[in-house]
Write a protein that binds this DNA or RNA. Structure first.
Lengths: 148, 148
DNA sequence: TTACATGCAAAGCATTTGCAGATAA
DNA sequence: TTATCTGCAAATGCTTTGCATGTAA
């Protein structure tokens, strides 16, 4: 077994164990989805991507289940939801702290390690001092589409 | 006439002149909307806010027109669209370069001056070297809602 | 056996669009 | 006069939900 294969399996197994930790039953659907999501290293995907990949692999999991599963996985930190555009949520399987560079024309997302953005000067956060999460999306568009 | 009133009128007049520059007819609906948007200094609003404000002022402009107008105003830089959540666009009337701090629980947006975030270390941008626009939204949630 | 999952179809919601009537130039 | 605009209602696209059936523990 190749080293990279081992690594991928490890991420899948960690995901299953996260399910158990959170009292969520490892049903066949959830196992299939976890496998697809975590077996390929860092990536960004949405419900539709996932739906198509399951079909391509010969499985048939309903879209509703996929939506619900993505949301549930995010609720305990297995995935991170990124709102890139209206009517389009993406999910990121990279658990390291990082931000996102979003190239709108290509609907492509690139991770930026945390250490590359200096946030020390953002204004004081009002009232709610206990932050749960800071998300940054850097949006980029090429010149030609300036008036869309 | 107070100084602040003068300033507000100035923003409104600048907006009208931007319309003319772009060959867009200053219809009564567009004038009313421009007035509401620009007469109160820097602010963030969405289609629904604007719809309610027009009604409160006794005007009746259809939601469709409001959506179309917000989109059109953004298309030539009179407004800046911010996608804060799925199915929810906000528009910002502040034309200075800046980023956004979005407090999710309160659906509140706070401007961050450009100079307060250091972006010099983001990774090289692929292929498309001519950037049109960089948007940053810092999302914040309070602790209590950690699993939503 | 029972609490939790799944899948379907219907509902929801913000936004967009087609089109007929209205309006600015 | 004519290109553009407005408003309505219907359409859209993604996502969520209600509910009957299925399944893990």
């Amino acid at each position: 077994m190749k080293k990279s294969k081992l690594y991928k399996d490890f991420n899948y197994i960690k995901a299953l164990s996260k399910l158990r930790e959170n009292g969520i039953r490892p049903t066949s659907q959830r196992k299939i989805l976890a496998k697809i999501i975590f077996e390929k290293g860092n990536r960004h995907l949405n419900a539709d991507d996932l739906f198509n990949e399951t079909k391509k692999l010969g499985y048939s999991i309903s879209l509703a289940t996929i939506y619900n599963t993505l949301k549930q996985f995010s609720s305990f930190g297995l995935l991170k939801e990124i709102v890139v555009d209206q009517n389009k949520s993406m999910y990121c399987n990279n658990k390291e702290p990082h931000y996102h560079l979003y190239v709108e024309d290509e609907a492509k997302i690139i991770d930026i390690p945390n250490s590359n953005i200096d946030l020390s000067n953002i204004p004081e956060i009002p009232a709610c001092l206990n932050l749960h999460n800071i998300d940054i999306i850097v949006r980029i568009r090429t010149l030609k589409e300036s008036s869309k």
